[in-house]
Amino acid sequence: MDAHRETSRNDASPEMQFVSFEIGDDTFLIPIERVVEFRIWSEPTAIPHSPEYVRGIVNIRGEIVPIYDVAARLGRASTNPSDRHVVVIVRGDDARSIGLLVDSVTDIVNVRTSDMAPMPKIDGGKATPFMTGVVFIENRILGVTDIERLVHETFPDSDAPASLAPPEASAG
């Protein structure tokens, strides 16, 4: 992508680097400093009592890291992963790490901060969870992934794991 050329007009605002990935036909961005590594998809160890978008856990250099299906997390159909799918290991502010299962990683793009805008508040922000803002590139508008929220908002109420127990344990 020639985004850097696109942004090289007389604009002195600083640049940020993003990694772009695709889910279906949509492209999303992750701030590059959040990305730890990329891995080819391989079946993780399944973990019980977890929401559907948690595909399991993997060993990343001795740490247990959960893999989230980004499509499922965004409320779309779950991914049917193959060895062409990619897992992006990202790290939040407090060193919590997760893996994001995406269709593909496409590029590294430089974006001037003047080409960035906060997320428009449509429907009080409910329609666009997990996005911190948008970036304008080549007449396209791309969403910037909210890594902090992905990493931390594991569950609506992460302090009450009992509510996630299988139906037979919580029914009644």
Partner: peptide, 21 residues
């Protein structure tokens, strides 16, 4: 550390094949 407490589990380990159990 990276996920959460899971009922029925006390943690995980990494077996000889490099995969978590």
């Amino acid at each position: 550390k990276n996920y959460r407490k899971v009922p029925g589990l006390s943690g995980a380990t990494i077996l000889g094949d490099g995969r978590p159990a």
